[in-house]
Amino acid sequence: MDIQSFLQSGLLEAYALAQCTPAERTQVEEMLAQYPEARAELESIELALERYANAQAITPPADLKDRIMRELDRVEVPMTPPADNLLLRIFQASTVLLLAAAIYFGYQQSQTQTQLAGAQNRITELEKQVVDCGTSVNAERAIVRLLHDQKTKAVRMGNIIDTSATPVYVFHNFESGNCTALVDVSVLPKQPAGKYLQFWALVDGVPKEMGMIDTTSANGLQSFPCEPKAAGFAVSIEDDPNGSRKPTTVLMLGMQG
């Protein structure tokens, strides 16, 4: 609407008389902001109405003013205008959101760090297992190589206490690079608590300590150090977990054939 049509439309009068719809009020306020002549015309309409109201004024009782001024202290007035309050509220809301986000991400980070530490521990554990497996595989390969070696010999040790018991074999190869004695410990009879088994080599007719037997060995085979001059092998039952210098009770005995 152009300014002249607007001034004659009656909208300004309706606005001054509070007779506008919300849409009309918005339209009038836009025109007022844009055209100084619209502002001047409204001013003139309002001034006429104001004078008309003044012409019919009635003076209120004299004490009313004092009553009102006394009441002022009881009225709570917002310290900042509504726009500032809105900004303040937005600021407060943002702060709360930021704080919540910080706590959330902080918690997430701490969770992540805990998970990371857990994962690193697990990796270390797995690495150790891989190394153990590697060691174990190498040991197995060494056994397989030993058993496949043409020069490897087997000595059959018989149970001299119970002759019907399963014999135990000692595989040895004292000629090649794999100088070792491998004992099939899995078939040795279980010992009661306080009794231990010790392995011996017979060198020049004398028993030589080779080490304690561990029947819980993973693959049932236990390696002992190289003894090229061994003529036979024996297993004794001992009371000392660290073994003794001489066999106490001989359990198994076998000589090179």
Partner: peptide, 27 residues
């Protein structure tokens, strides 16, 4: 008189909302 008192208290409380670009103070 009660209405006039309430009116001036509202004016006091809501003075921040008056915008002179939208009309005279008396309106």
């Amino acid at each position: 008189q009660q209405v006039l008192q309430d009116t001036f208290l509202k004016v006091w409380k809501n003075s921040a909302s008056y915008d002179s670009a939208k009309g005279r103070l008396f309106t």
